[in-house]
Design a protein around this nucleic acid. Structure first.
Length: 400
DNA sequence: AATGCGGGGGG
DNA sequence: CCCCCAGCATT
């Protein structure tokens, strides 16, 4: 830890790598952080609600929320979350459902589960105070190497690198790394570079780390980097090997991804007046831990859907015990509702809604199966498309 | 090394 | 329609 904070010996493999870098790269490595910090003074983003905050809890929440999630999205949700859970102890003391409800709509719900688990770990292991050592931070739930580096840098001024999508793109361009960045050897080299480029003074770490993110997010962007327009002069235009060799738009290179497969499923919208039946989803699957409509198993889109109304049987698997199909049969038949298309990063899903009204709520005796009033939906974490669907019902009911 | 995991922004 | 994003955990 002392190495990370006070010396340049933190990364011996990085030092070895240095021997093989061309002279121009060596000069750049010594000047990079100064140039970047100077750039930040003129063009960096300011006024983001999680900036200039030395509270490790506040830093940590922002870093988790920003994982794979753009600033514009987090901008609305972060203050709300911090108001709802102002301290790590309050977060640790909350129920999982309360955290999920606050996280709903942000996606990647394992982040919310890990967030809660991590809060408990911090309270139990560290008396409610986050450690400043990135090695210890990385041992906590949901904190990987990059997030650990960001927390250490922002909250504790520790000389630890980050390597997010912004940094990968910036480094792959400046050093013209042409192999796919998913490869382990490339990833290792990027981490080594990120370590080499750190400013020598620990006090500069928050500004430097912020500058790195800002530069990637606003100037060295994926599609429209400023070096390809005439509006600005990139501080690295004479250093950037991709710029000098006209490869900016093709770097970083990525492996070709398979096209996302398509699925169908059927969902049961059982209502009784203002009440709707919700089912809690298993924690490890998609929308894990959220409350959704009871759902049939998914089937590949190609294998044509059962489009007849024999579909009472569809839900026998997801509702508890044999009561399910019997109960459905003794009432009116299922009515075909809307078909909803929902696109994930790596899945496409068509949800066929089947509507059923019952005179009064059937009690299932299952904690994961609850009748919820349309007015109280806000207290439950719902998948975004289900939330939209049920809000529509709510509006119709209220005659808005 | 490969895969699973959301949702929204922007070209 | 497409790709991208303040990544991590699991296998």
């Amino acid at each position: 830890m002392q190495d990370l904070q006070n010396t340049n010996q933190a990364n011996s493999s990085g030092a070895a790598l240095n021997l093989f870098l061309p002279a121009m790269s060596k000069a750049l490595i010594t000047s990079f952080s100064k140039k970047l910090i100077a750039w930040h003074g003129l063009h960096g983003r300011a006024g983001l609600p999680w900036q200039n905050n030395l509270d490790p809890y506040a830093v940590w929440v922002s870093e988790i929320m920003l994982q794979q999630t753009q600033v514009a999205t987090v901008l609305e949700r972060y203050p709300r979350f911090m108001k709802r859970f102002p301290t790590v102890k309050q977060l640790a003391a909350a129920s999982m459902d309360e955290v999920m409800a606050e996280w709903a709509g942000l996606g990647y719900y394992s982040r919310a589960r890990n967030l809660h688990a991590c809060a408990v770990q911090v309270v139990e292991r560290f008396a409610g105070k986050f450690p400043n050592d990135p090695v210890l931070l990385e041992q906590l739930k949901g904190i990987g190497r990059s997030t650990a580096g960001a927390i250490a840098a922002f909250a504790f001024h520790v000389r630890a690198p980050i390597l997010d999508a912004n940094v990968k793109r910036v480094l792959a361009r400046i050093f013209a790394i042409e192999d796919p960045i998913e490869e382990k050897a490339v990833n290792d080299r990027l981490w080594n570079l990120a370590g080499e480029l750190l400013p020598s003074q620990a006090k500069d770490m928050p500004t430097y780390t912020q500058a790195l993110m800002d530069f990637g997010a606003t100037w060295c962007t994926s599609r429209g980097p400023v070096c390809l327009s005439n509006n600005h002069q990139c501080p690295f235009s004479k250093d950037c090997q991709a710029n000098l060799s006209d490869q900016v738009l093709i770097l970083p290179r990525k492996r070709i991804k398979a096209k996302s497969p398509e699925f169908n499923c059927d969902m049961l919208l059982m209502r009784s007046g203002n009440w709707v039946l919700l089912q809690k989803r298993p924690s490890k699957a998609i929308w894990g831990g959220l409350w959704s409509l009871p759902e049939s198993s998914w089937s590949a889109r190609a294998g044509a859907r059962t489009n007849d109304l024999q579909s009472q049987e569809l839900f026998a698997l997801t509702l508890p015990d044999s009561l399910a199909p019997q109960s459905l049969k003794t009432t009116e038949p299922l009515k075909r509702g809307p078909q909803i298309k929902h696109v994930f990063t790596h899945r496409r899903l068509w949800m066929q809604i089947w509507e059923l009204s019952v005179a009064k709520p059937i009690e299932w005796g299952d904690a994961d199966l609850q009748w919820v009033s349309l007015r109280q939906l806000g207290q439950y974490g719902l998948p975004q498309p289900i939330k939209v669907l049920l809000q529509g019902l709510s509006l119709i009911r209220d005659g808005v």
